[in-house]
Design a protein around this nucleic acid. Structure first.
Lengths: 307, 307
DNA sequence: GAAAACATGTAAGCTGTTACATGATTCG
DNA sequence: CGAATCATGTAACAGCTTACATGTTTTC
């Protein structure tokens, strides 16, 4: 399968410009190209030369001129031919497996950090994939069958990621059975479920959230319980967290954003905090990723309702 | 992850030559390189230049001279560093999903053929993967932990493929619920289980096995029941099958071999067959892939025992 | 006597990536 | 006023693949 096929496929759904194609590819989970200009524009010129597509230049007032590409009958024929070709087996490059295979020089602790890192990455992928599926691919299905197929394609990626997460869990289990697992967690937390929505409440943390590793532990907690909402109490945080210059808060919040975790922080006495921290809180409370509250009830409300 | 890392990884298990490395890579499920000379030998020269490996030329009597590469301390350090790097997300190129996405111009029948083709391909992959896991990767684990990890790596590939097959089944189901599925099968068959081994017995076939499509149907039957053993009765075959010049037998047997299906054929009266067909049978009966018998009991015995 | 396996290398080419170059408009 | 979005393109390069080139030994 070449990028030309993918372009013909997309254009068969709806005519569009090179720029649009680029976006579709970037947003797509199953078109594995990065959506870089070089390839797309080059391929379009080639396809046009061979008569698979034609282009109409559209001069727009108050916008750049653009070239709208449309698939020709010849292009459609080629596409149909390609559609009927014997399917290729997927090719997966799981570099993590190689990393695991040659991790002999690592200690048990380091190995577990590695696996947890992978778990977190995969979980983030799953979240992103679900998000994308919710948004839809920017293309409208032309028939009921097409809608079903597209739904199942999204589902394919999702089940694949879920299978991977399940595998990670079984790997952890096997390791811990063999006495190479992790020690009891140093966090005091509960998992709540309300109206089919889960959230994790972290009441305390042995050392207080301070290092990147602590942030990763938080995320792997989310991954383990497949839960994207967190309620964090002040007692789980460290004093460094409240000193912006240490960068601890920034780093941890950034991790939460990266892994699409919505977090609500419950602080006991806001008036005691530094001016700079208060400013940061105000700014944060405009966003929908994490917020600060002075009581648990409000925090939970925002977490569950998103309001 | 570059091929250099993979090479360092393999050499950390055991010193070997470029040729050995090539074989290890080709046999491995998780090292995604084709194992081509160009890259391996070039990388080895580069690694040696930078002091990550060193080589010893071994002149062997009655064999070509070879260069045995060994990893240095520096190489080991680099490997350890790489091992601890944040794991990358796997990158999967499932071109079949793109094919599905743009299959709008295909009819329901053609779509189903496509999906079945994918099912068969994936099933073949699963069989190959299991075979490889049984053989082992040619490397000996140096510790219990390593053995466990390698086992789990094989298991990862297997669960991934199994998840894919499950997804295909659910896709077929959804399509048939929506009235776009396949008609009732035109084969008369039974699935037998004995001593935890399954085999499929095909007693009759509406049109008699004749086309490639018929062969593919056989294979998808195997894939559906996750079963690699078949017992085929003469009534399921067509007259063309017994005329070697038509190529029907060759084509169908080739497909069975490709998809790692062991098949036993039960023929009623061997004496009636043409001389050329008998020759072919004799030749075939030396192999372990498919055999011909004149009674069901012998056929089943060979199928189950492999003797 | 031919094919397969052992063993080391090179050349050419394809695919896809990042980064660069340009220029208009819109939004905060 | 700067950043982001729209829009089209180019240049250079990294990575990997197939195919070629060469020569020996073992196996069928």
């Amino acid at each position: 399968m070449t990028i030309e096929h993918a372009i013909l496929g997309i254009l068969s759904i709806r005519p569009m410009t090179g720029y649009d194609l680029k976006k579709v590819m970037q947003d797509s989970t199953y078109l594995h190209w990065s959506g870089n200009n070089n390839q797309i524009y080059k391929a379009l010129l080639g396809l046009q030369e061979d008569g698979y597509v034609y282009s109409e230049v559209q001069h727009q007032e108050s916008a750049p001129t653009k070239k709208q590409y449309t698939i020709t009958q010849r292009g459609l024929n080629t596409l149909t031919q390609w559609s009927m070709l014997e399917p290729e087996a997927p090719e997966c490059k799981k570099s993590f497996l190689a990393q695991l295979a040659f991790s002999g020089t690592l200690g048990n602790e380091e190995l577990l950090t590695l696996i947890t890192g992978y778990e977190n990455t995969m979980w983030a992928q799953l979240q992103m994939c679900k998000e994308r599926a919710r948004r839809g691919g920017g293309l409208t299905p032309r028939s009921k069958r097409e809608a079903l197929l597209w739904e199942m394609i999204d589902n394919n990626i999702e089940t694949g990621l879920t299978a991977e997460l399940d595998w990670i869990r079984s790997l952890k289990e096997r390791l811990s059975e063999a006495g190479m697992g992790k020690e009891g967690t140093h966090m005091q937390y509960e998992v709540h479920t309300q109206d089919q929505t889960k959230f994790i409440e972290v009441r305390a943390h042995a050392s207080g959230l301070r290092t990147t590793q602590d942030a990763m532990d938080l995320i792997s907690l989310c991954a383990e319980h497949d839960c994207g909402l967190m309620l964090l109490h002040e007692d789980a945080l460290s004093t460094d967290f409240f000193q912006l210059k240490t960068g601890v808060a920034g780093e941890i919040l950034q991790k939460l954003v990266n892994y699409r975790i919505r977090a609500a922080f419950v602080l006991k006495d806001i008036s005691k905090l530094s001016v700079r921290f208060k400013e940061m809180m105000l700014e944060a409370n405009k966003s929908n990723q994490y917020r600060f509250f002075d009581n648990r009830a409000d925090a939970e409300l925002w977490l569950m309702k998103g309001v």
